[in-house]
């Protein structure tokens, strides 16, 4: 997988992944689990992981494949 492919993949999945995360957190909230007021830092963590993946695009081939 080339770097350009990897960068494109990360850019492509960024929006959907964040949307899924928001939906999951609200679903947990509505299901009676942890409220969104307590779980919102997960969004920051996911955003950081996505940024980290994106920054690996300029540094040679990626060892670990897709999760």
């Amino acid at each position: 997988m080339t770097n350009a492919d990897w960068a494109t993949l990360v850019r492509a999945i960024r929006g959907p992944i964040l949307l899924i995360t928001v939906g999951t957190l609200f679903a947990i909230d509505h299901a009676g689990g942890y409220g969104f007021t307590r779980t919102w830092p997960v969004l920051i963590i996911v955003l950081g992981i996505l940024k980290l993946l994106e920054s690996t695009a300029g540094k040679g081939p990626v060892e670990g494949g897709l999760p």
């Binding site: 007021t37 919102w40 963590i45 996911v46 955003l47 950081g48 992981i49 940024k51 920054s55």
Partner: peptide, 26 residues
């Protein structure tokens, strides 16, 4: 600039902040 060449500082800071707030909120 999103794609810097050096150490990915911004993502690490984001993840660390998120973990800190999550630990606090839980």
């Amino acid at each position: 600039p999103v794609r810097g060449q050096g150490f990915p500082a911004a993502p690490v800071v984001l993840i660390a902040l998120g973990v800190l707030f999550l630990l606090n909120n839980l």
